[in-house]
């Protein structure tokens, strides 16, 4: 029996990048994710977290900050998602020790979601087939994010590129929805010349 950790989308094994008519699709798996909830008015906790993370928690809605391999994503006024590519300093334990079980919650949600990265000139056209979101308004600049519905499933979008770069967006998907979304994206890459 193979007990190794496997990625969610079968055709995107081993960090394979698929190219569908100019849209590149890649699954970024095994990223550590921590859900952090603290009261933003409690400056003591905010400072403690910022010290561990080496950067401030973004308080501007629908933005994220990047610090090395760490991303801190605004989810709601008192909730953040922290992603960490390589967990070499045991961030989760540190956060838990610092603010743990007081008026805060630190939860490891690594296995809850997977990330699908799509890039290409026409990804906004592609996404607009499935989203009700006004992408121009809600993902206006680099380091903005938005939570919305992808057809019927909840999704978190992260804009990684600035205006003069090739568009690249990360989709945070609940694992059981990942194949559904992937199939729709592959289908949607056709007829993008409207």
């Amino acid at each position: 029996m193979n007990l190794l950790r496997e990625n969610t989308i079968k055709s995107l094994k081993n960090n394979k990048i698929e190219n569908h008519l100019g849209i590149k699709i890649q699954e970024i798996c095994f990223i550590n994710k921590i859900n952090l909830r603290i009261n933003p008015e409690n400056l003591e906790y905010m400072k403690a977290c910022s010290k561990i993370l080496n950067t401030i928690l973004p308080t501007k809605p629908n933005t994220f900050v990047k610090n090395g391999n760490l991303k801190i994503i605004w989810l709601s006024p008192d909730e953040w998602l922290i992603t960490n590519d390589i967990d070499n300093d045991n961030l989760f334990a540190k956060l838990r020790n610092e603010v743990g079980d007081l008026e805060a919650s630190v939860t490891d949600i690594s296995e809850n979601r997977t990330i699908v990265r799509i890039s290409g000139e026409k990804i906004y056209k592609l996404l607009s087939k499935f989203l009700v979101l006004d992408l121009e308004k809600n993902l206006p600049t680099k380091s903005t994010c938005a939570q919305t519905l992808f057809v019927k499933v909840p999704i978190l979008l992260l804009r990684n590129h600035s205006d003069n770069q090739l568009p690249e967006v990360d989709l945070f998907l609940i694992k059981s929805h990942a194949n559904y979304v992937y199939n729709l994206i592959v289908d949607g890459t056709e007829n993008l010349d409207f």
């Binding site: 809605p61 629908n62 979101l133 809600n138 919305t148 519905l149």
Partner: peptide
């Protein structure tokens, strides 16, 4: 009040 104008389905 936090995210701005969004569709009702959300």
């Amino acid at each position: 009040p936090y995210c701005g104008e969004r569709e009702q389905v959300e």
